[in-house]
Structure formats: structure tokens, C-alpha cells
Amino acid sequence: MMFYFASAALIAIGIYMLMVKKNLIKMILGLSVIDSGVNLLLISIGYINGKTAPIIQPGVSPSNVVDPLPQALVLTNIVIGVSVTALALSVVIRVYKHYKTLNSSEVRDLKW
């Protein structure tokens, strides 16, 4: 249950960062935090009380392991998260070069 609370807290903190912070890098950090929260949530949904990692080896029978599916999904999600963060950061670098600011409300070219 702890894990649920932790992931809820992570997601809430991440969204709060997105809502309140104006600094582009902090917003990307917020995205990353949400990402971590969601990953944690997925893993903990897949957990089954008293079971172990899903690797079948002598001493571990199939009836004894947790759900591997969320873990596989999280593996995907981590990679996607990395991609998103890298791309977003490079765009921010560009934005900074062009506008000399990281404040999102000062980047006005796409607004009216």
C-alpha cells in the first residue's frame, strides 16, 4: 500500500510542478517525476503478496512469481520516458539559445 501512496505523491508532485513552475527545465523535471510515479504505480499493481521476481529457476516455480507484464510495460515506458526527456531538453536548449530565457511565459512567438 505504501507504494501506491508513494506513486500518488510522485504523480501529484509532478503535476504540481507542471502547473506552477514557469521554468522550462523544471517543467521537464516535473514530467520525469510523473513518469517515475507512473512506473512505480505499474510495478506495484503487478506485485503479488509474498511472491518473487519473475525469473524461473531451480527453486522458483511459476506459482511463486509476480506478474511480469507490468514490468515489461514499465521497461518500455522507461525508454520512452528517456526519449521524451532527451528530446524535450534539446528543444529547451534551442529555445534558450533563441530567446535567452527559460521562462515559458516569455516565449511568446506561438501565442497570440
Binding site: Q57, V65, P68
Partner: peptide, 8 residues
């Protein structure tokens, strides 16, 4: 043996 790998 690693079920996660099997899924992925």
C-alpha cells in the same frame, strides 16, 4: 528463464 524478457 526471465519472464519479463519473454514478454518484452
Amino acid at each position: 528463464a526471465n519472464l519479463v524478457t519473454a514478454v518484452v
